[in-house]
Design a protein around this nucleic acid. Structure first.
Lengths: 240, 240
DNA sequence: TGTACATCAGTGAACGCGCGTTCACTGATGTAC
DNA sequence: TGTACATCAGTGAACGCGCGTTCACTGATGTAC
């Protein structure tokens, strides 16, 4: 997002303005609880006139694309960073990644909806473009866990060994796209884990669990994460 | 939705018009892939002038509320109807309910987003109003499965027996709201199952699994549903 | 270091459009005697 | 059964507002000699 230090002053201020436009758009989305974004409002908050924004984005859709790509990157960064504390503890890494996913969504429900909710109309993902690339990066963080679990031979016990042939084909396809080796068992376990994680996360982020006490939500999330880990064959975290 | 047969002709045509307005609004939502709804568009499609709609709905938010309530009802009806074929087979009922939930969302992603996505701005759920009532009815379909599983003493084996005290308090609160007996173990198992089901369902409904073949998605959903059932302690379906 | 030119950010006016909503009114449908 | 009245659906004009986007232009910032 920030320009390289070797950039000229003009390039740096330009990059800063782009950042400010995107940050302002996000603030407005958070304030309104929507996924909409109006050039007029952004300009008003920034203290400029609406046409000024066209120096930075060709139209509203281009801004939207940038916001979506950024959101993918940001989520992926958070999930990736979560595992740094205990790189050798698969169980701890899974819990940390799940918490990171959940916390990010809870903190930024609008951005979460932007990338993983009902697709916003008028926005069409560029073919093979930066969006799917960012998405892949985000998912690969999760998948590496399950690949390692397979290597540790704990994966899928006792339920997840059988993989449907059609799913296997999909796993091979993804392996080629991502240019990694992604065994079908790991692929399937990852998707199951992701789905369960995503379900709790979106229900909570969109406020559909607000009738529960925060402490109860925490406890429920904890047991869901543990449950997934046990079922998928991820080991217990090493700490007590 | 339809007026009682004893209603006068005027009341019947009025009810029919209300239905037509809502159906037209849904068609437009489906066409645009949005959750937005414009009085002007509805009127144009129906061949009337926009002010005519104010005879039926005080404003846009009232129409939105009606659409949300209807969507809850419709989803609840589908899930409830799914279990009629084998009322004594807990495993089969779970699979059918999960399939019904999934199919409804896949067929109507916009309505699904309307009730379970990022809340639409401008719409504030009426306190203790028809919305939460409809939501409760929808969820109670699922919860009855897990209450029965507890009675059959299969629930939660081997992972789900421990329930955090805060979650227990929540379960008691829900029991009073719904005026049913909802043991904490059943409550927790239901929420875990619902979260996992909801996660797959929303990812698929919003097109985030479109990179998989439909057959692979079906297989993956099947194994996810089986997995949840095994973990939650629901029995295998009786048929082979 | 200073001057001439090119580049770029931002302005202000304008265009075309669409929205939700109100209001007084017309014409048709139902109701009461 | 027929007439007088009440009720209601729908119209058309209007209000106020906001949006995205274009365009010619000004003034400031950077660049080349």
């Amino acid at each position: 997002m920030t320009a390289a230090p070797s950039a000229t002053r003009r390039e740096r201020t330009r990059a800063a303005t782009i950042d400010e436009i995107k940050a302002t758009a996000l603030d407005l989305m958070r304030g309104a609880g929507t996924v909409d974004v109006r050039f007029t409002d952004i300009a008003r908050v920034m203290g400029v006139t609406p046409p000024a924004l066209y120096r930075y984005f060709a139209d509203r859709d281009e801004l939207l694309t940038a916001l979506i790509t950024d959101a993918y990157d940001d989520l992926a960064r958070h999930v990736a960073a979560s595992g740094a504390a205990a790189p050798d503890d698969l169980g701890a890494r899974w819990e940390a990644a799940a918490q990171a996913y959940r916390e990010w969504a809870h903190r930024e429900p609008e951005r979460f909806a932007l990338i993983l909710g009902l697709p916003v109309p008028g926005y069409v993902a560029p073919e093979e473009g930066p969006t799917s690339e960012a998405a892949s990066r985000a998912l690969s963080q999760l998948s590496s866990l399950f690949v390692e679990a397979l290597h540790a031979d704990t994966l899928g016990a006792p339920y997840l060994r059988e993989v449907d042939p059609t799913v296997e084909v999909c796993a091979h396809g993804k392996s080629e796209d991502l240019e990694v080796t992604l065994p079908a068992e790991s692929f399937q376990a990852m998707l199951h884990a992701w789905a369960a994680l995503h379900g709790f996360t979106s229900l909570e982020a969109y406020g559909h669990l607000d009738w529960m006490e925060p402490a109860a939500r925490d406890a429920l999330f904890g047991s869901q994460v543990t449950l997934i880990a046990r079922v998928a064959g991820l080991p217990e975290p090493l700490r007590a």
